[in-house]
Design a binder for these strands. Structure first.
Lengths: 197, 197
DNA sequence: CGCCGCATGTAAGCGGTTACATGATTTT
DNA sequence: AAAATCATGTAACCGCTTACATGCGGCG
């Protein structure tokens, strides 16, 4: 399981399940979503495997927390996961499957609308990432290359998000144009056919 | 389920499970993997839902085939899936999670090696896509903008793969360089510290 | 004779999502 | 008084992967 490894990575410092969820929402959200209902049982399992240890701790506000701490065995497993090399090629890209079948709508204008919608979504996500970047850059003068390692590598993932979304946006632009040409060409042909009848 | 929709899209023309697997391997492989053990039960379920119909047909070589054909209801469901707009943001990117925690290896040279390996993998996939593109371009003079719609949209997905992998490759390049600078800077500091002792 | 390609399936298990259940504290 | 936030969990279900089971026909 991959979530196991991500939790081990996040537990560089001790934390409880709820805090881990927040960490997901703040830093990893753009390429990894996690649910509390998945986090809790996974933490439990990791403890059973001896990769984590937990202790209860009273909280000022709300019920007591169950705080997990990574064991040395847990560290070793994390290290091994990364050392095994990059996990690539398992991606399933839903919107690309949709694009693949776009002709089956039988309506180029509907296909066009799909691409326009995709570009809008991409633009939103791109704007969100850019906002994070400018915020970070303005709050820390060491951004990006004088950050300490623990922040530098997350910064690299942000940069990857930015570059990928920019590439998707460029693709949307050019694809939309090409579909527009297609529509124009087709209507010319139709007129020619009508004139010929 | 998403595989359901992809199978519906692939069944523009009737086919059996084994052929569908081949279609996956030929055209969708780069953004969607599918297993026979998943395809067969899914086809069965789609038939139970009235989105497909099947008939047995003897084969020259090997056992008889079970050929599925899409019903009008199946067409409607496919259409609806695409019309609901692009499915984005559900992606879990394993290697980015690994990059995120790369500092925890506690060894910049190991992190560097990871990025080099990622770049190598990216390069391989990029080369594979480029080979497909040049093959297609040389075998069909209509490539890319005079292809018929049923080929044009798949061509768009190929182009997306190319652009994304190129972006990842650029990111790898610049990230590797930045890590190298980091290593160099660090060793300078170490020398300074030694001199100071 | 064994292996490969064609062809169809089942069973077990895993990882993840959705929905449900509970309850304290803080904010509106 | 109601809603939001903090906090932990369970149960049911779903989709997918891995492994297993079966069998035909052609090739070396």
């Amino acid at each position: 399981m991959a979530l196991e490894h991500v939790l081990l990575g996040l537990l560089r410092k001790p934390a409880n399940g709820y805090q881990l969820k927040d960490k997901f929402n703040h830093s990893l959200r753009h390429f990894w979503a996690a649910d509390l209902a998945q986090i809790y049982p996974t933490l439990k399992r990791l403890e059973q495997q001896g990769l984590l240890k937990s202790r209860r701790q009273a909280s000022d506000k709300g019920p007591p927390r169950k705080i997990y701490r990574r064991t040395r065995k847990g560290e070793r497993v994390l290290n091994q996961w990364i050392s095994e090399g990059p996990e690539t090629g398992r991606d399933r890209i839903g919107y690309l499957a949709q694009v693949f079948f776009l002709d089956q709508l039988g309506d180029l204008r509907a296909a066009h609308a799909f691409l326009v919608a995709l570009r809008a979504q991409t633009g939103e996500r791109l704007a969100a990432l850019r906002a994070i970047e400018t915020g970070w850059a303005s709050s820390d003068p060491r951004y990006p290359d004088r950050l300490q390692d623990a922040d530098f590598f997350p910064q690299l993932t942000l940069r990857m998000g930015l570059m990928k979304l920019a590439a998707i946006d460029r693709w949307c632009q050019e694809s939309i144009e090409r579909v527009e040409h297609r529509i124009a060409r087709r209507s010319v042909k139709e007129h020619a056919a009508e004139a010929g009848e």
